[in-house]
């Protein structure tokens, strides 16, 4: 107290002035025509982040792809060699997040967001929940059988070789890369062109909900 309190008392009028100045400044920047952040445009207007995430500049797209594609691939491979279930789930989380950003690079924004909401928010929590319900100690590990490892290695390497052959050996018919699709278009298509699959999926979700609840319910005499 003492010195500070006196300073404040002395400074009170000045303080009010400064406060007024702050409010005035903020109000001025508040004027609608001063477009600081985005210039009022959407994604197609460009900008650093949309260049990286929207892939409109080749350099940015390459950087984004190698960064997040690399992360996705690395963490996917890390899942294979992790024994701790929770660690596996966290690596899966990294993969899913990176894939979501890849969707952004592919200008599928809606899909990218849904990927995060459904996977990171839903499925992953479900998985960790499952782990917690079914694990005896926080760091329980399953020994990996040598046979399983060998079989997995052989199968996946063969598969990978085959896929690579297919990917690199085929001359894909390529058109012009398409831009982003408005969510409204996607929504309209879901309820017109894809109405039947959409409804089928809805029914499936209902069935799954009932089925999961039935399976997970506590048995009582």
């Amino acid at each position: 107290m003492g010195a500070n309190g006196e300073t404040v008392t002395v400074l009170k009028p000045q303080l009010k002035l400064i406060l007024a100045a702050v409010i005035a400044c903020m109000a001025m920047t508040a004027a609608p025509r001063v477009a600081m952040a985005s210039g009022g445009g959407g994604l197609d207007e460009g900008g650093f982040v949309s260049d990286v995430l929207g892939g409109s500049h080749p350099l940015f797209e390459a950087v984004g792809f190698y960064l997040f594609g690399g992360l996705a691939a690395f963490s996917a491979i890390a899942i294979c060699f992790t024994k701790d279930v929770v660690r596996m789930a966290i690596w899966l989380f990294a993969t899913l997040g990176a894939v979501a950003i890849l969707y952004f690079l592919l200008t599928a924004y809606f899909l990218g967001v849904i990927q995060i909401i459904v996977y990171a928010g839903g499925t992953l929590v479900l998985l960790i929940f499952g782990v917690m319900l079914t694990t005896k100690s926080p760091s329980m590990q399953f020994a990996v059988s040598k046979i399983g490892l060998a079989a997995g290695g052989v199968v996946s390497l063969l598969l990978f070789a085959a896929l690579m052959g297919l990917v690199l050996g085929t001359d894909w018919q390529r058109g012009e890369p398409t831009g982003s699709i408005p969510v409204a278009t996607l929504g309209r298509d879901l309820l017109t062109t894809y109405l039947v699959p959409f409804e089928v999926i809805s029914v499936l979700l209902l069935v799954v909900m009932i089925g999961a609840a039935y399976l997970a319910r506590q048995e009582r005499e």
């Binding site: 990996v144 059988s145 997995g152 290695g153 896929l163 990917v167």
Partner: peptide, 15 residues
């Protein structure tokens, strides 16, 4: 393809 094979590996080898 890489992610796919990693997934297949996990499916086969995890207990």
């Amino acid at each position: 393809a890489i992610i796919f094979c990693a997934g297949v590996f996990s499916m086969v080898s995890k207990r």
